[in-house]
Amino acid sequence: MQIEQLKRLILNVLGDMKARDVSVMDVRNKTTVTDFMIVASGTSERHVKALAETVAFRAKDAGEPPLGTEGVREGEWALVDLNGLVVHIMLPKVRDFYNLERLWSAPALVASEAAVR
């Protein structure tokens, strides 16, 4: 499955399950860990768990089993690692605290600039 197809699948799952404030970040030029991050909010711990479990199930069903999941049992912040795509699902208060969108949108420090400092 191509990364764009996987991204569409995950966005459809999140939309169907009423995830809130879904955002997609292209982080290919910022990290080698993944190509895209999707961040979404759930309305309760139960909703966060259900979103993460369904994302993992539907990806596996489509032939892209997750490399791992974290935080699903707790339900405040769940992560589903789909290799080229990492999905973060959080309660709004946790999302506001960590503010991943701001973190990953910060300009990358260029190596030559780092050497000057």
Rank of each mutant, 00 (worst) to 15 (best):
S23L: 14
R73S: 06
M17N: 10
E64W: 05
A50P: 09
E45M: 12
V94D: 06
A108C: 09
A106E: 08
K49A: 12
I10S: 01
V55A: 03
R8M: 07
A40R: 03
D35C: 09
T43M: 12
L51K: 13
A62S: 07
W104N: 02
L67I: 04
L11W: 15
G15N: 09
H47Y: 06
I89R: 00
D21I: 10
V48F: 14
K93C: 15
R58C: 04
K60R: 04
L109A: 08
N12M: 13
R20H: 14
V24I: 01
K7E: 01
Q2Y: 05
K93I: 10
L11Q: 14
V24Y: 10
D81F: 00
V80Q: 00
K60P: 14
A62Y: 04
R117M: 06
G68N: 01
N99P: 15
H47Q: 15
G42P: 04
A52W: 08
M17A: 06
L103H: 02
V94M: 15
H88G: 05
D61S: 10
R73K: 03
N29Q: 10
W77T: 01
V27T: 00
A106D: 12
E113D: 11
L14I: 02
V55C: 04
N29W: 12
I3N: 07
V80E: 00
G71K: 00
G15C: 10
R95V: 11
E76M: 08
V39E: 15
M25L: 15
E101D: 11
V48Q: 03
F57L: 07
D96K: 12
P92S: 07
E74D: 13
T43L: 02
A106V: 07
T31H: 01
L67F: 05
V27K: 01
G84D: 10
V27M: 00
A50Y: 05
F36Y: 09
A108L: 04
V24H: 03
H88S: 01
D26I: 02
G15A: 02
E74I: 06
V33S: 11
V55K: 10
L85C: 05
V72D: 05
R102G: 12
D21G: 06
A19I: 08
V33E: 11
S112Y: 09
N99Q: 10
R73I: 14
E64Q: 15
M17P: 09
Y98C: 11
E76Y: 13
H88M: 03
T31F: 01
I3Q: 02
S41M: 06
F36Q: 15
K18W: 15
V27P: 11
L109H: 08
E76N: 04
G42Y: 02
I38L: 03
P66V: 00
R102K: 09
E76W: 11
V72A: 01
A106Q: 15
L79V: 00
E70P: 05
T54V: 09
A106I: 13
V110H: 05
A56W: 05
P107N: 12
R102S: 10
V13W: 01
F57A: 15
E64S: 11
R8I: 14
V24K: 14
R95C: 12
A115M: 14
G42N: 03
A111Y: 11
K7I: 00
R8H: 04
V94F: 13
F97R: 14
D26W: 00
V116K: 13
Q5E: 13
G42R: 05
